[in-house]
């Protein structure tokens, strides 16, 4: 069996509402809130970055897994906001959780899907018997150019998953995974550029919908299942609308997406987005329930997973904070403080 031994999430305390951003740029806040399906988005603290978010999520996953840090054989950190252009985030996280030095570690980048890529690589390493446990993290303090549509959604958060193979330890079994990727120029950030550029409407049909739907259908074929076989479905969530539209296009009951759709309250956490959504499902899922997850990373590609919850989850639940715990204590920022937090003023 290959499965999830423990998982952890982290979302910073600060929030900003789309109406506040719209106020500054002369846009209609309510129209944007409804159009994007975003109530508010998370903002990192001044002393937080993708590495610090990753460490908090990693520590939470360790608390749930209940394994010694030195047992972790691989640590992969997926992000598009790694603090250094050259110097791994993974070694910072490994040192902070007490893992290593006998550890495979690397940083990954594939827009919003580098976290699920790391999960697949850990599955391969664990399945091949090269390691006992692998930790995959998706973490981002995502960037949005001031005034750009992305500024309303680009949030901050992280999720960490420990992959193992002992049946008695796995809170969920990963039954299957597959991927779909093409060279699609929907969203990019050049080296030294502070903010990403994107293709506007081009990010929709040829990018998000094409890859999410193709990868999900590939998983259905590979596992000989249909949407009806899954209790919950989690799609990558760049906003609150795209996942529901993808479900509609596939004839999937939108109700199956509700629990895993968290972007409306924390924003798009990029590499963390689909796996924070998965964590919210796992926070309350019961043994035997099946979950389908499809991530999406611009550039572009999707990874899909078929997951079945085991009864081990009951004994491990409560050992680390749930996503809901990070949604209770929050502090709203006005645009001025938001600019300070994100260091968007050049003079800062």
């Amino acid at each position: 069996m290959i499965g999830i031994v423990g998982y952890g999430v982290y979302v910073p305390k600060y929030r900003i509402k789309p109406e506040e951003i719209a106020r500054v740029w002369g846009e209609e806040g309510e129209r944007i809130r409804k159009g994007l399906g975003i109530e508010e988005k998370s903002v990192p603290g001044i002393d937080e970055d993708a590495a610090t978010l990753a460490v908090e999520a990693a520590r939470n996953s360790m608390a749930m897994a209940g394994i010694l840090p030195e047992k972790i054989g691989a640590l992969l950190v997926g992000s598009e906001s790694h603090p250094y252009a050259v110097k791994p985030t993974a070694t910072i996280v490994a040192e902070a959780v007490g893992a290593g030095p006998n550890i495979m570690s690397a940083d990954l980048e594939f827009a919003c899907k580098a976290g699920t890529s790391g999960m697949q690589y850990c599955m391969g390493l664990v399945g091949a018997g090269m390691i006992s446990y692998g930790m995959a993290i998706g973490t981002d303090t995502s960037q949005g150019r001031p005034g750009d549509a992305l500024e309303y959604t680009a949030g901050a958060g992280a999720a960490a998953y420990i992959i193992g193979r002992e049946k008695t330890e796995c809170i969920a079994e990963i039954l299957a995974t597959c991927s779909y990727a093409t060279d699609t120029p929907d969203f990019w950030r050049r080296q030294h550029a502070e903010f990403p550029s994107h293709g506007g409407r081009f990010t929709g049909i040829p990018a998000y919908f094409k890859h999410v739907i193709a990868s999900t259908q590939l998983l259905f074929e590979k596992t000989n299942t249909t949407a009806k076989d899954y209790d919950y479905i989690v799609f990558h969530q760049p906003n609150g609308k795209f996942p529901l539209e993808a479900a509609k296009k596939m004839g999937i009951d939108e109700g199956k997406l509700k629990l895993g759709l968290v972007t409306p309250v924390i924003g798009n956490t990029y590499s963390g987005a689909s796996i924070i959504g998965l964590a919210n499902v796992l926070d309350s899922a019961k043994a035997g329930e099946k979950i389908l997850v499809t991530s999406f990373g611009s550039g572009a590609g999707s990874d899909s997973f078929a997951i079945e919850v085991t009864d081990v989850i009951e004994s491990k639940r409560g050992k680390s904070p749930k996503l809901a715990d990070y949604l209770v204590h929050k502090e709203y920022l006005d645009y001025g403080l938001y600019v300070k937090h994100r260091k968007k003023l050049k003079s800062l």
Binding site: D47, T52, A96
Partner: peptide, 15 residues
């Protein structure tokens, strides 16, 4: 775990 300081725009980050 937080960022404590950074040396300069091109310098080391201290956690």
């Amino acid at each position: 775990f937080r960022r404590i300081a950074e040396d300069s725009d091109e310098g080391l980050l201290h956690y």
